[in-house]
Design a protein around this nucleic acid. Structure first.
Lengths: 188, 188
DNA sequence: ACTCCTATTAGGACCAAGTGCTAATTTTAA
DNA sequence: TTAAAATTAGCACTTGGTCCTAATAGGAGT
């Protein structure tokens, strides 16, 4: 069979590596029946990283999933608490909170901080989040310190509404309103 | 501080690499304050493969799962994924997810499952939650299996709306609508 | 046929993160 | 103090590359 054109080869290469990212240049070269150098040029032009880099990317994806929300993970450190009024907690974003690829904090950590703060501020035996409306205003990266401020904005039969705003420095990065269900101890 | 004994060092080494498998011998050596050669011997004795091999193993584990489907960074176990359409994951609620007092699952775990599923369903390099509106319909206890079902309900410039409903048996326990911001890789 | 231009090959120096080996030095324990 | 165990050092070699330069092959146009 005649050799493919450069364009065709590169297109096929991209597709192939999506399915089989573990091929060395040598194997690829054999597959297309061209020299190793040609493949290197192809990768360069298509900005496909080298084998080890490709493997690493796949591996990191996997590792991320393991580092999920661990139980004992403290969701921020409480630094102020006025029961039924307001509360403040801080959470230092570390490597364990971010996506490895882009270092951006996973949303559920910011949520967890805010949610647990909203619950802590309630002065009751049993408090559970019933609903919430949240917004992620800016992405937070590893190294930043997020300060969450909660305040009770409404309190009525069985339900309390808590507003939480989280900041990194002066900037608000997250905001949410939590409706928390509360009940005296008897029921459950 | 005094150096650890060989045994202690090797034990710690094994544990450390379980958590952070991406360390080079040099980094490890620095960490334990011994020579690189010592670490090589340690790995030999504990039959811990070299860095590249370790990365590869982690990557393969991932690749095995559901190939071209990006099982990415999901909390819970992904059992179905139609990119840009729908996805399903299951999460078994264990002791580690609940409040000790009443065995009720902490809300942020249900949120994390739903949120990560909403992100996984997006067929794009970068996807981040912009906002969400959620409801906790019934409390979930340790031992229950929560099945989250996500489906894309709206897609337009830069944003996709994903609806997630989570069930325990027949009962819906959680529902949320996530607005996910998506972008091709170039920017940031 | 001759000339350009693109594509393909070739080759060498260098790199990271090792393996495998031998040998020297240090520590520890009997 | 002396033997055994542990640690450190050094060197050659390996993989799967990068980066760079240079040579050659194939066509298209004139």
């Amino acid at each position: 069979m005649s050799k493919l054109s450069k364009k065709e080869r590169q297109e096929q290469l991209v597709e192939m590596l999506k399915k089989k990212p573990f091929m060395t240049d040598e194997e690829i070269a054999k597959h297309f029946n061209v020299s190793v150098q040609t493949i290197r040029l192809d990768r360069l032009e298509q900005s496909i990283p080298e084998l080890r880099e490709r493997i690493k990317v796949v591996a990191e994806r996997n590792l991320d999933q393991v580092r999920s929300l661990r139980v004992d993970e403290v969701i921020g450190e409480m630094i102020d608490l006025q029961l039924d009024q307001s509360a403040i907690s801080i959470l230092d974003i570390g490597e364990e909170h971010v996506f490895t690829r882009n270092k951006i904090a996973r949303g559920h950590h910011l949520f967890a901080q805010a949610n647990s703060l909203a619950i802590a501020v309630i002065d009751e035996e049993l408090a559970l989040t019933a609903s919430a409306k949240i917004r992620f205003l800016r992405s937070v990266k590893a190294g930043e310190r997020v300060v969450a401020k909660a305040r009770v904005v409404e309190k009525r039969a069985g339900r309390t509404k808590v507003k939480v705003e989280s900041f990194s420095g002066q900037e608000m990065v997250f905001a949410g309103t939590f409706t928390v269900y509360r009940a005296e101890k008897e029921k459950y």
